[in-house]
Design a protein around this nucleic acid. Structure first.
Lengths: 125, 125
DNA sequence: CAGGATCCAAGATGATACTG
DNA sequence: CAGTATCATCTTGGATCCTG
């Protein structure tokens, strides 16, 4: 281990940019108005079809949902299952194991959102 | 207990929309490309001035930063402190106690972002 | 320095219609 | 049903210039 070169970078800037860039990475893939919502619905419904999914996500259009799903599939959060045996073709979406790694994030967010909502209500009176 | 009317709502839809709406609320206030980043930098730097803040946040323009700060101030995440005694006026931004309630969210996100980055690297080989 | 005002380009979104 | 195509629209964002 004596040959290990430790580059002594400024600690504050270091830690800062470390957190920052990780959060940045996270926001990059699961950020935006819809991604997390879709992931949540998918996780809670097991498997679900396109139109039902759309109904479950308040306000999303077919086009946007379609695009988001492609994106999520590319990133490994969603699996698209086609049942070709039926006509018209049935397509189901299911969440992947990898999407389950987001549990802590979703929990933290929903927890915070809950208390935040309470705070807002109190602020209003 | 026999008179208790239990409205048997579909449990899944119920729990689903609960998580969903909380996360939705959270995303509504801290979502977007910049908000969390600004909050992080603010938390890690104690107090900081406008231009320095801008330098610390890769790629943000003055206009956007200005707007985001107003928004964050309205929501109680940031305090704007004006030192009028000096000329030209010095303005400092500091994070509030309330912004610290986001710690769990930030931790979860940065943790996830970190492991995600590792996964991506592995996927590439 | 700390922003506000303005202009413009680009991307996101909604609505509607259409297809296999 | 599971989307795609197209168009009109609206919002964002960047660039630049300006000011107290």
């Amino acid at each position: 281990m004596e040959n290990t070169i430790v580059l002594e970078e400024p600690i504050t800037a270091q830690k800062c940019s470390e957190n920052l860039s990780s959060v940045e990475d996270a926001i990059y893939v699961i950020g935006g108005k819809w991604k997390l919502k879709i992931i949540i619905v998918l996780q809670e419904s097991g498997n679900i079809r396109f139109n039902e999914l759309q109904r479950n996500i308040q306000g999303i259009s077919a086009r946007v949902l379609s695009n988001e799903l492609k994106d999520l599939e590319l990133n490994g959060f969603v699996k698209r299952v086609v049942h070709a045996e039926q006509t018209p073709v049935v397509v189901e979406y299911i969440s992947t194991d990898y999407s389950r790694t987001l549990k802590p994030v979703i929990m933290a967010l929903s927890q915070w959102g809950r208390t935040h909502k309470r705070k807002i209500k109190e602020d209003m009176r």
